[in-house]
Amino acid sequence: MSKILIIAEHGDGRLNQSTARCVSCALQIDGAGADVLVLGDDCATVAAEAASLQGVARVLSVQRPENAAPLAAVLAPQVAALAAGYSHVLGPSTTFGKDLMPRVAALLGVAQVSDLMAVEGPRRFRRPVYAGNAIVTVEVAEGRPVVATVRTASFKPSTAGGAASIESVGSAAALPGHSRFVELRRGGGGARPDLQTARVVVSGGRGVGSEANFTLLYQLADKIGAAVGASRAAVDAGYVPNDMQVGQTGKIIAPELYLAFGISGAIQHLTGIKDAGLIVAINKDPEASIFQAADIGLVGDLFEIIPALERALG
């Protein structure tokens, strides 16, 4: 039997949806569900949200002023101490989890399974390597805790309807004072849906041509209630901020609909969208490799197509 602990991700007093996706992953490992650990300085709302997810057995909440910002060096010793007795410790494969979980694994003296994308057994999983160009099956040796980051795009979020207990837990772990949070400068999303959880994503590449031209994409996105993403080329060219990057080194997303405008389709980008329900590519170059990955392709000038699309869908 497995005993699973999930490290909750949260911000602005809300539970991040990545946690609900980890719960779904945990349910595939063991149908009995999982405990969720919330670390913060004011955890009540987040803990209540976690407790309402189906598949959550118990919510453990560690409230300390030091946990106000998610500093891996501060959180990891607390997680490692509370991991005792658990067979699995899971976190999301977001920048939060990628930062924290390897530090936890090293404190526990075990390897980490990064980007867990499929469960084949309690200790056997599949994960992508080489930007998703190969998939490996890995197995964690018996007698060691499984520490993993969960590729959130591979699991649907667990839905509400649970009623887990919430327990306040003390943490005696000695915390370092060598790391200090200064500030978070928010990215380009604004009031639009979150890129990682949006149903529909409108995305632009180098073909968009400039920061000003991205306005076309924002307008279309606002009309159809979509989030806006970008390729690395568009980010590197300075058209949009870094947090909009989709791909191997950016965000891995799984929207129901992905509309790619002026994106050539580098393999590193495609790895970020391979779980999208429907991929639509618009590019003026009929040879662009994005068309190999797209479900629907349209060769043409995005500066004509976007306004026409906006009129047709608005």
Binding site: V113, I135, V136, E139, A141, A294
Partner: peptide, 18 residues
């Protein structure tokens, strides 16, 4: 503590339409 058991090609998406 972590053993690689198998290497496989990723699943191909079905070919799309233009």
């Amino acid at each position: 503590s972590l053993r690689t058991l198998a290497w496989n090609e990723p699943q191909e998406r079905q070919k799309g339409v233009m």
